[in-house]
């Protein structure tokens, strides 16, 4: 059923990575991605892979659930691999079928590199969302974007909106489930019929769902006003973000990683 969809995919835990400041994790993700794009050789990829696997090990996230999250992305991976494999003409020819399908050495390496890059990119991002609750993620994002306030970007409002949106996803799923059951009880049929008929069958679900969402939004707005909410101006936080020693160590590792990859690249590795 709808309830089985995992969203936000936060995996509660108490590993050193869970305890890191969300800002650190966000910055580290950016550093990691930059390093990944700087990496040009097997050696530097191996370095990145060791870093990634160590991070997963420390996070205590079961590798199985990370693999499960990969499932929807298999198509993209295959697509990238195939494109690079067949359309790169570089180096010695390995396979040549009727001058139509040509696989070159360069194409093969490129395909493997691109797939490894995407795989590691996604796994790194997963590590962030798996170890950081949506609330602290938005908190971290708000803190990092804070300088933009000088340019009159409504940073607090944006992060509050994101926070509310995340909060209401499970509620809306539950509501959809209820409305579907109720309309089914009146004989609505969502499984049979042509595409048009099925699309039309969604109206009895969508209309009440939207009305319900607006009603909830209204109620939430009133409830927030009752608690004197007035945006980010002068607002204090219950959980203050503070960099600790672990965060400093992490930044250190990030710098070492980047330098290492750059040095390796300058040696042509």
């Amino acid at each position: 059923m709808l309830k089985d969809i995992t969203l936000g995919q936060y995996f509660p835990g108490n590993s050193p990575i869970h305890r890191l400041d969300p800002r650190t994790k966000l910055i580290m993700l950016v550093v990691y991605i930059v390093a990944l794009f700087l990496a040009k050789s097997w050696v530097s990829y191996a370095v990145m892979l060791v870093f990634l696997l160590t991070a997963i090990k420390i996070s205590t996230i079961p590798p199985k659930s990370i693999l499960r999250g990969m499932k929807p992305l298999v198509m993209i991976l295959v697509f990238t691999g195939v494109l690079n494999l067949f359309f790169t003409r570089d180096g010695r020819t390995l396979v040549n079928i009727a001058d139509f399908i040509i696989i070159t050495e360069g194409g093969l390496t490129r395909a493997v590199f691109m797939m490894a890059r995407i795989l590691m990119l996604i796994t790194g991002t997963f590590l962030l969302t798996y170890t950081t609750s949506p609330i602290s993620l938005t908190d971290g994002l708000e803190a990092l974007l804070n300088p933009l306030k000088k340019l009159h970007v409504p940073v607090h409002e944006l992060s509050m909106m994101m926070c509310i949106a995340l909060r209401f996803i499970p509620t809306l799923i539950e509501e959809t489930d209820k409305i579907m059951s109720a309309q089914k009880a009146r004989g609505a049929d969502f499984e049979n019929g042509s595409l048009m008929e099925r699309a039309r069958a969604l109206i009895p679900i969508l209309v009440p769902l939207f009305i319900g969402a607006f009603r909830r939004a209204d109620e939430l707005a009133t409830a927030m006003e009752c608690r004197c909410y007035q945006g980010g101006e002068g607002r204090t936080k219950m959980k203050l973000l503070r960099y600790r020693r672990n965060d400093m160590v992490t930044f250190g590792i990030g710098i070492v990683l980047t330098v290492l990859v750059i040095v390796l690249a300058s040696f042509g590795l």
Binding site: I179, A185, R186, G187, V207, P208, I211
Partner: peptide
């Protein structure tokens, strides 16, 4: 026939008539 809790949140048609007719139509 099954009437769920707070069934008024499942109304969706333009008129009361059409909404009541949804079940018989199906």
């Amino acid at each position: 026939g099954l009437v769920f809790q707070y069934p008024e949140y499942q109304l969706f048609e333009e008129t009361v008539y059409k909404d009541i007719a949804f079940g018989p139509k199906n």
